[in-house]
Amino acid sequence: MEKAERLQRLAQAVLEMDLEGVGPLVEEALAAGLAPAEILAEGLSAGMRRVGELFKSGEIFMPEVLVSCDVYYRGLEILRPLIRKAGCGATRGKMIIGTIHGDIHSVGKDVAVPVFQAAGYDVIDLGVDVADEKFVEAIREHEPDIVGLGTYMTSTFMHTRETVRAIAEAGLRDRVRIICGGPAVDPAAARRMGADDASDDAWEAVAKLDRLVEELRSARRSA
């Protein structure tokens, strides 16, 4: 089988929500000599990008997107240690992400994390109902470029202010850029609360992450 065909089948497995099939396909691609990073970028991640296109055009909906994300993860689980071992895990940036305290929803985050990973970000998922102190600790531990605050209700979006304040009081605000995500977010309101941006669209958010990382690196260089 040609390399291009193997990668195409991997992308298709993500698209067709083939939870059982993706593992064997990844193993076969590895056995055929494809590089783990290549399988991820041009197979699984290509599938996630196509999922995004179909979601945006209204051809698939959230339930299908979530299962496609699960398929992506199942493949990624096999590849992740190999990519680390090969030392070819250069990323566009590092991010910690979590659903803000008081909120247990994760639909948006469950989609955003694989989308960001597929776009080349190293994402550490802190889970749901994440206390402000946990975000602070995670910044110290992982030294991310971006902090992603998942806020899925109007009231929990309002907690952005407190989380940003906790990060600032820990003396870490200048080290990171903060972006809110979820259906209730508004970029202007997010900025008023001290964050840097917000997005209700995981795919659109990738461009915002790129810009924020560039701004941060530029600020670091100037400093």
């Binding site: 929500m17 939870l19 959230m62 339930p63 299908e64 979530l66 299962v67 699960d70 247990i104 929803h105 994760s106 639909v107 469950d110």
Partner: peptide
């Protein structure tokens, strides 16, 4: 069961 689980199960 939390909505994110339920909607997944509608597929799986």
């Amino acid at each position: 069961v939390e909505v994110q689980q339920f909607v997944r199960w509608t597929v799986t």
